[in-house]
Design a protein around this nucleic acid. Structure first.
Length: 935
RNA sequence: GCGGCAUUGGCGGAAUUGGUAGACGCGCCAGACUUAGGAUCUGGUUCCGAGAGGAGUGAAAGUUCGAGUCUUUUAUGCCGCACCA
C-alpha cells in the first residue's frame, strides 16, 4: 500500500486482465458473423484433446501465435473466423472410466471446463459461441452423415472422383447381364469392393492390451503410439475408408499448398508413390498332373527395375499371398505350412527386431518371359502382402534384400551392370551400362528402364503401373467412447441408417469393458437395435471427429446440414492452420481425404482444407536438479550446490535428484520451499555456491545461494518440470506469458521452457506502462515519429512473416528510445497501444483507453508506416579497403552515388589507407557501404 | 539405408536482398539509491591483448571487392520414413 503513494500507477496486471476479459465477454467483442462486406480470413488452431492434466505452458504456444495473427488481420480490416473446440472422444477418458467407473462424458466435460477457464485467462480472441465438441450428438450427427455418404459412394478411376454408388449400379444394370442374376447378398458383396467406406477382412494391427484395432499411423515400431503396448497382426472384418484411392490426388495437391517443405516431404514419403511396371510370369508346377487350370497359371509382380529382368534368378511370394496355395507342390506342402505357421505367430515387433533371412521353396518354377529360363519360386516374409501384388521377381545382383536371400539359399547372382562388383554386396544404384541383358546391352540404366517398359507394353507381358504405399484407413475401434456407426445388419449385410434418423446416439452401457464373450463394449448396451435389426458394435476412431471439424466452425449450429452452402462459400477454407507436425501422417492426411471426398460430392467448395499451415515447435521441459551427497559419512541430508560438484571432494559422490522447477528461480533453489516440498527434505542441509555450509552458519534464508543443475527433458510430472500457465499468469500476468512464449525463439523450433528471463519481459511491460501515467497533447517530434514508424514497419513485417520472436526486442527498443526522449505524446502512445494489441491485448486495451479512446483496441485500424519519417539527414558509410572496414564516412542523405565516390576519394583517410596503391574498382552500395578495391 | 532441418558468446537467440556479426533478453561485473535486496536505476560484458591491434558464426575448400548467408566436401545433433521390390 505504501508503494502506491509513490507509484500512483503501478502495473496491476491482475486487475487489468480481469477487467478487460470481462468487458470483451459482456460486449461480445470477438463474436464473428457470417455476413460481412469485409474480406474473410480463417485462422484455426488444431483443437486439443482435453486431458486430465490440464494445459501446460507448451500447449498455448501455437494458440498465442495464431491469436496474434488473428488480431492483426482483424485490425487490418478482415472479418476473422478464429474458433476453438475440443477433440473429446478418445482412449484416456475411457481407460479412466474402466478404472474408476466414472462415465467418460463426466470426466471429459470436467476437463473441457478446466481447459476453457485456462484458455480464457490467456486472453484469446476466440469466438466461443462457435465452440464444438466431437462427442456432442449435434456434432457427431455430421460425422455419421459423412460416413453414410462414403458408404453410398465409390471412387471412379476414370474421373478420379467419388461418385454416388447408384451410378455404378445403373451402369451394371445396363451393361452387365450377370448383375441381375445375383442375389441381393451377392450384389451387396460386389458393391462392397467399390464403396469408399467398406467392410473387409483385412490384416489389422491388433493391440491386445488396448483391446482394439489401430490404424497404421497409431502404431510405431510394432508398439501402440498410445501406451506403448505390443501390436500383432490379425485378420479381422473391419470398416475401412478407401483413402488409397485418393493417393494420387493427395500427392499432387501438395504442390499447391503453402505448407513447410518438411511437412510436405513427410506426406510424400507416407503416400510413397513409385513408378514401375507389373509383369506376368507363367508358372510351371513341377511333377503335378497337367490340368487346364495349371497350364494357365501365372503370377503378376510389381517392379521399379524392369530393366533387370535378365538377372532374375528366383521369385518370392509374401506368406499371405493368394498365389501361395496355387503354387505349392504336394512334396513341399508340409515344409511350407510349417513356415507359414511360424510367420503367423511372429508379432510385427519380433519380425522387425529379428531380420534374419528366412524362407522356403514352393517346388514350383516361373518362366522368365524374356529368357524363357526356369526360376524357382520361394516364400519369404521380407515380401509384404500389402504392397504391389505381394510377389516379386528377385534380382540379387542389384537389390540388397534379394542379395541376402540369394546368399542364404545359394542362388545364382547375375550382374547386369558393367563394372559392378557383386562378390560382397549388391549394386543398388541406378547408374551404369547394361550387360548380360539381351537387347538392353550397352544402354544406360535410365534408358534401359524406359526401353523395357515400352517392350513390356508392346508385347503385352505386362503394363506400366504406379504404386502407392498409402493404405486404406481401418475405421473400426472396439471401444465405447467414440462415435457409433450409423449401420445396422440384416442377414449379416450392413445397411445405413436413414439420414432423417441421425444421429444414432451413443448408448449407456452397464460396463465399459468388452463383453464376457469378447464383443466390443457396445455389446453391453440394452436394446442396441434399429428397425429391429442389430446395430454395429464398433465405434469410430479418433480421427473421425477431427477430419471435418474446421467445416463445422463455419456454421456450428446448423441442424439441417454439415455446413450451409452460403457459410461455406463465404469462408471457403482455412487460410492459416497452426499445429504440431506429429499430425503429418494422421489427421492431416485424413482431413485432406475427407475434404476431397466432400468436394467431389459438391458439399464443399474447396478441394483442399488448409491453405497455409505452420507447425509450431514443441516446448520441452527444463528440469532442475539438486545434488545429494552420498560420499563418506553421508547422512543423506546434505545437498551440494551445482557449481561445486566437480570439485575433488564431491566428484562422483553426489546423486542428482529432480527438484520441482516451480520452487527454483533462475536456477537458485528456494531453500524453505524445498524443505517444505516433501517430508524427506524436511531437514535438508546445504553447501552453498560460495562453499559455506548451512549447518555451520545455521542459515535458513537469505542471500546465500544454492545453485541447481538443469537438463532439457520431456515435460512430464515425474520429472517435476511441468509449468502450469495459471501459475505464470498469477505471478506475471497473461500479457507477460504471451510475450515471453513468443520471445523464447522462432515459432517452428522446439525449445525448452526456461523461466529464466521472464522477468526481463515483465520489466519491459512495467516500464512501458509507466509511460502512460501522464499523457500530453502535443505534436510529436521528428525523432519520436521516427521511432514510432520504425516500429510500425518492423511489427508489420514480423507478423506477416510469422517472426513473432523478433517483435519483442523491437518494442523494447522503441520503449527505450521514446523513454529517453521523455516522450508522452498521445499521438505516439496511442499507436504503440495499437501495435501491442495482438501481442499483449490486455495492457494494450488499458493503454488505448488511457489515451482517451472508448472503443475496443481490436477495432482500431492498423497503423501505416510513413517511410518519410524514417529518412535521416545524414548517411554513414563504412569505407572498406579490399573488404576490410577502415573508417566511417558521413555525408548528407540522398547524395548521389558518384558524388559519394568523389567525396570519399577526397577524404584524407583514403589516402592514408591507400598508401600509394592503385585503385582497381570502387563499389558504392547506396546507403550501405563504400568498398575500394586496390590493385 | 533414404529424405528433411539445424550448428553463431556463459545461456536463449538477432542479423529480412551477399554489405559494420553478436540486436534484444537472461546471467555476470561495476556503480547509484538503500538498515536490507530475489526491488529499482545507470554503465560495461564475443575471445586474445595493458594498449594499438588481432582473431572470430561446427571443420575444410571454393565463388566474390565483400560470405553467418551462395557452392562442394565433411563432422555432429534433431525429426520423418524404413524389408515398399
Amino acid at each position: 500500500m505504501h508503494a502506491n503513494l509513490f507509484l500512483s500507477m503501478e502495473y496491476n496486471f491482475s486487475d487489468i486482465e480481469k477487467k478487460w476479459q470481462k468487458a470483451w465477454d459482456e460486449n461480445g467483442v470477438y463474436t464473428v458473423s457470417n455476413e460481412s462486406d469485409k474480406p474473410h480470413y480463417y485462422v484455426l488452431d488444431m483443437f486439443p484433446y482435453p486431458s486430465g492434466a490440464g494445459l501446460h505452458v507448451g500447449h498455448p504456444l501455437g494458440y498465442i501465435a495464431s491469436d496474434i495473427y488473428s488480431r492483426y488481420k482483424r485490425q487490418k480490416g478482415f472479418n476473422v473466423l478464429h474458433p476453438m473446440g475440443f477433440d473429446s472422444y478418445g482412449l484416456p477418458a475411457e481407460q479412466y472410466a474402466i478404472q474408476t467407473g466414472q462415465h467418460p462424458e463426466k470426466t471429459t466435460f470436467e476437463n473441457i471446463d478446466r481447459y476453457i477457464s485456462q484458455l480464457k485467462k490467456i486472453g484469446f480472441c476466440y469466438d466461443w459461441s462457435r465452440e464444438i465438441r466431437t462427442c456432442d450428438p449435434k456434432y457427431y450427427h455430421w460425422t455419421q452423415w459423412a460416413f453414410v455418404q462414403m458408404f453410398n459412394s465409390y471412387f471412379d478411376p476414370k474421373t478420379q472422383k467419388a461418385q454416388p454408388i447408384s451410378k455404378l449400379i445403373a451402369e451394371w444394370e445396363a451393361n452387365d447381364p450377370k448383375w441381375a442374376t445375383l442375389s441381393e447378398k451377392e450384389q451387396q458383396e460386389r458393391l462392397m469392393n467399390y464403396r469408399i467406406a467398406y467392410l473387409a477382412d483385412t490384416k489389422v494391427n491388433w493391440c491386445p492390451a488396448l483391446g482394439t484395432v489401430l490404424a497404421n499411423d497409431e502404431v510405431s515400431e510394432g508398439l501402440s503410439v498410445r501406451g506403448g503396448f505390443p501390436v500383432e497382426q490379425r485378420v479381422m472384418r473391419q470398416w475401412c475408408l478407401r483413402v488409397s484411392a485418393y493417393a494420387g490426388r493427395l500427392l499432387e495437391g501438395l504442390d499447391r499448398l503453402d505448407w513447410t517443405d518438411s511437412l510436405k516431404e513427410t506426406q510424400r514419403n507416407w503416400i510413397g508413390r513409385s513408378e514401375g511396371a507389373e509383369m506376368v510370369f507363367k508358372v510351371q508346377r513341377d511333377k503335378v498332373p497337367s490340368t487346364k487350370e495349371n497350364e494357365e497359371l501365372s503370377m503378376t509382380i510389381f517392379t521399379t527395375r524392369a530393366d533387370t529382368v535378365f538377372g532374375v534368378t528366383f521369385m518370392v511370394l509374401a506368406p499371405e499371398s493368394e498365389y501361395v496355395a496355387k503354387v505349392v507342390t504336394p512334396e513341399h506342402k508340409e515344409e511350407v505350412d510349417a513356415y507359414l505357421a511360424r510367420c503367423k505367430n511372429r508379432t510385427e515387433r519380433e519380425r522387425i527386431a529379428d531380420r534374419k533371412v528366412t524362407g522356403v521353396f514352393t517346388g514350383s518354377y516361373a518362366i522368365n518371359p524374356l529368357t524363357q529360363g526356369e526360376i524357382p519360386i520361394y516364400i519369404s516374409d521380407y515380401v509384404l502382402a500389402g504392397y504391389g501384388t505381394g510377389a516379386i521377381m528377385a534380382v540379387p545382383a542389384h537389390d540388397s534384400r534379394d542379395y541376402a536371400f540369394a546368399r542364404h539359399f545359394n542362388l545364382p547372382i547375375i550382374p547386369l551392370i558393367e563394372g559392378a562388383d557383386v562378390s560382397e554386396q549388391s549394386f543398388d544404384a541406378k547408374e551404369g551400362k547394361m550387360i548380360n541383358s539381351g537387347f538392353l546391352n550397352g544402354m544406360e540404366v535410365k534408358d534401359a528402364i524406359q526401353a523395357m517398359k515400352e517392350y513390356i507394353t508392346n508385347t503385352g507381358i505386362g503394363r506400366v503401373k504406379v504404386n502407392y504405399r498409402l493404405r486404406d484407413a481401418i475405421f473400426s475401434r472396439q471401444r465405447y467412447w467414440g462415435e457409433p456407426f450409423p449401420i445396422y445388419y440384416k442377414d449379416g449385410m450392413p445397411y445405413t441408417v436413414d439420414e432423417q434418423d441421425l444421429p444414432i446416439t451413443l448408448p449407456e452401457v452397464s460396463d465399459f469393458k468388452p463383453t464376457s464373450d469378447g464383443r466390443p463394449p457396445l455389446g453391453n448396451a440394452k436394446d442396441w437395435t434399429y428397425k429391429g435389426y442389430p446395430l454395429e458394435l464398433c465405434t469410430m476412431p479418433g480421427f473421425a471427429g477431427s477430419s471435418a471439424y474446421y467445416l463445422r466452425y463455419m456454421d456450428p449450429h446448423n441442424d439441417q446440414t454439415l455446413v450451409s452452402k452460403q457459410a461455406n462459400d463465404y469462408w471457403r477454407q482455412v487460410d492459416l492452420y497452426l499445429g504440431g507436425s506429429e499430425h503429418a501422417t494422421g489427421h492431416l492426411i485424413y482431413s485432406r481425404f475427407w475434404n476431397k471426398f466432400l468436394y467431389d460430392l459438391g458439399y464443399v467448395c474447396e478441394d483442399e482444407p488448409f491453405k497455409k499451415l505452420i507447425n509450431q515447435g514443441m516446448i520441452q521441459g527444463r528440469s532442475n536438479f539438486v545434488y545429494r551427497y552420498i560420499g563418506e559419512g553421508a547422512t543423506g541430508n546434505l545437498y551440494i550446490s551445482y557449481n561445486l560438484i566437480e570439485n575433488p571432494e564431491y566428484k562422483d559422490k553426489v546423486q542428482p535428484i529432480h527438484v520441482n522447477v516451480n520452487i527454483v528461480n533462475n536456477d537458485v533453489l528456494d531453500i524453505n520451499a524445498f524443505r517444505a516440498w516433501m517430508p524427506e527434505f524436511k531437514n535438508a542441509e546445504f553447501v552453498f555456491a560460495d562453499g559455506t555450509s548451512s549447518e555451520l552458519t545455521g542459515y535458513t534464508a537469505g542471500p546465500k545461494q544454492y545453485i541447481c543443475g538443469w537438463a532439457v527433458e520431456k515435460m512430464s510430472k515425474s520429472m517435476f518440470n511441468v509449468v502450469n500457465p495459471d501459475d505464470v499468469i498469477a505471478k506475471f500476468g497473461a500479457d507477460t506469458l504471451r510475450l515471453y512464449e513468443m520471445f523464447l525463439g522462432p515459432l517452428e523450433m522446439s525449445k525448452p521452457w526456461d523461466t529464466n528471463g521472464i522477468d526481463g519481459v515483465h520489466r519491459f511491460l512495467k516500464r512501458l506502462w509507466n509511460m502512460y501515467e501522464h499523457i500530453e497533447e502535443a505534436e510529436p517530434t521528428k525523432e519520436e515519429l521516427r521511432s514510432l514508424h520504425k516500429l510500425i514497419k518492423k511489427i508489420t513485417w514480423d507478423i506477416e512473416n510469422f517472426s513473432f520472436n523478433t517483435s519483442i526486442p523491437a518494442f523494447m527498443i522503441a520503449q527505450n528510445e521514446l523513454s529517453a526522449l521523455k516522450c508522452n505524446k498521445r499521438a505516439v502512445l496511442e499507436q504503440i497501444a495499437v501495435l501491442m494489441a495482438p501481442y499483449a491485448p490486455h495492457i494494450a486495451e488499458e493503454m488505448w483507453h488511457q489515451c482517451g479512446n472508448n472503443s475496443f483496441v481490436i477495432d482500431a485500424a492498423w497503423p501505416e508506416c510513413n517511410e518519410a519519417y524514417l529518412v535521416e539527414d545524414t548517411q554513414k558509410y563504412p569505407v572498406q579497403f579490399n573488404g576490410k572496414v577502415r573508417y566511417t564516412f558521413e555525408c548528407p542523405k540522398d547524395t548521389p552515388k558518384e558524388e559519394v565516390e568523389k567525396l570519399v576519394l577526397a577524404h584524407e583517410d583514403t589516402a592514408k589507407y591507400l598508401n600509394g596503391a592503385a585503385i582497381k574498382k570502387i563499389i558504392v552500395v547506396p546507403g550501405r557501404i563504400v568498398n575500394i578495391v586496390m590493385g
